[in-house]
Nucleic acid binder design. Sequence first.
DNA 1: GTTGAAACAGAAGTGCT
DNA 2: AGCACTTCTGTTTCAAC
Lengths: 151, 151
Amino acid sequence: MNPKIDNFDQKILSLLQQDARMSHAEIGRQVHLSQPAVSERIKRLEAAEVIRGYRADVNPKALGYQITAMIRLSTQQGRPYAQYVASCPEIIDCYTVTGEDGAVMRVLATDVEHLQRIINELNAFGSTSTAIVLTTHVAGKTITAPVQEGS
Amino acid sequence: MNPKIDNFDQKILSLLQQDARMSHAEIGRQVHLSQPAVSERIKRLEAAEVIRGYRADVNPKALGYQITAMIRLSTQQGRPYAQYVASCPEIIDCYTVTGEDGAVMRVLATDVEHLQRIINELNAFGSTSTAIVLTTHVAGKTITAPVQEGS
DNA sequence: GTTGAAACAGAAGTGCT
DNA sequence: AGCACTTCTGTTTCAAC
């Protein structure tokens, strides 16, 4: 792990994950550091790509997506689903994973008919297994530095 | 779907998902709207909870997490894993889903030993199925309003 | 690391079309 | 609804400590 991430950086990262638009002065107040010190640390974290960027968290339901589903795709010898995944706006996450399921993706749909259409399209690349999300316990939990085992 | 989301709002949401710290004036330039008009629309979108918040995108690898895994948990008659999930910093997403897998979660681990420890803890709540993420095709793709079928 | 000042950029409020 | 203008807040950079 990056040894340059101290407790101040850790706290700053935590605050920025909760609210990316928090002012550096306000962060300084909460971590007991001056505003220029906070700005400098954030600049370092951005340069080191610890902070990849800042994103607005948009509520899919407010846009009309009533359904979130997790779809597992078992591809037959590496069919080129990557291009479809990239071009399909309903697929918002897609990971290639170990095991018999080649890919796991998170999909948004307005209704079950919409979901059915997406599944049909994905079936061109392999067999799918779909699980509709009932409740979201946590999504995008704040990432903290791992606790050291032997420190 | 929310009928008040027009093309301007759609474009603003897209820009803010790419960069939450983009200034309202810069957004205005790109959507051909004045800064106050953009500010007012963003305020509306925030009030309507279309925009839930703004989050820094932190790179797990930069913090020392070398492994991302998708773990499926088949719980036996609703064991109380929710509390564990909330308290475990390595579990960053957790959804209850339909089907035999009661829950699907995304987990960060520093190494395979670390992952093994998390799996062991989760096994207290049911049987687990773990898939290690090999590649991330897309993560947190920009959400766009659904295309209308009959419009 | 800190404070303080100056220059600049961005956000919010006002009035008008 | 929209824009132009002003004001206030926040950020950045600089100095000196």
